[in-house]
Amino acid sequence: MSTGLPVIKYDKIKGVKNTPHEEFYTSGHRTCQGCESAMVMRQFAKASGPRTIATGSTGCMYVANTSYQTTPWIIPWMHTQLGAGGASAVGMAAGLRALMRKGKLPEEKINVINFSGDLGGGDMGLSGVSGALQSDYDLLIIMYDNESAANTDIQATGLTTYGAQTTFTPPGQKHRIMARRWKKNVAGMLAVGHPTCRYVATASATYPALDFLNKVRKALAIGGPTFIHTFDPCPKGWDFHPRYSHELGELGIKSGIFPLFEVIDGKVIYSYDPRKKGRVPVREYLEKQGRFAHLVDEDVDYIQQMVDKMWEEWEVPGVAPFRGNLNSAQK
């Protein structure tokens, strides 16, 4: 399931002080203050290092990120179409593999990474991401999830939290809630659906510290196609002060609304296990964001109840919503 080239040996980063100093995503972008998606960019490039080629699907991390003549990218980077994240990574990995095998390019392991947004990677490009995860190329797809089509002015996507106000889901006098879809479980679905894919994870750019950096390194070192779904508070789309981006990410994880896990060779490992550490009420997470200001108690209760189910009733809590006591039935 890989090129057969020696894998890049990545040391696990232990302790914030040991984070590499080199930046491969630097000044030049014009993302909002407090943009956690920009943090995802900075961190993945830091973790993967200079022998990397990245493609970025259309979205904030293209339009607000990479303007002509002020590119923030130190590593080679190319734009790809909104729904083409998976295909872009496959194309580059295939090109590099063929050129190296045929002696047209010196052999070396080059990291191929695509980042796509929740609309690009989780809705429109899902089929292409699936195609990439079925392949045997070494590649990593990062779906950075700011829970909206942020670039086009904050429209609901299949990953927007239930109830949230967006420009496509405004609260009104007849309908308080226009966003009635439950958030699509992309990482879980991809892990379940691609048994030969060795690494699927969820992450937050900043919580727990170093977690995302090390997940990127693990994904790149394990070989084959890999996938990470990041949870990115977006001050503009979620309507909160940019000062609180990291805190909101942390609250999302601690409330259990965004589960943090890795699936490595089919084994589930919780990076933050709220069943052991306890869950803070989702209200604490929701009430800090303007996009939920119109919710009433009943709505908050519904969300809490869905989150409770995810942790208490799902066969693989936070990952796969099967129910029916499959485990106990075996016993």
Binding site: A87, V90, G91, M92, A94, G95, L96, L99
Partner: peptide, 8 residues
């Protein structure tokens, strides 16, 4: 398209 961009 992307294969072409890396020289294939």
């Amino acid at each position: 398209k992307h294969a072409s961009s890396v020289g294939a």
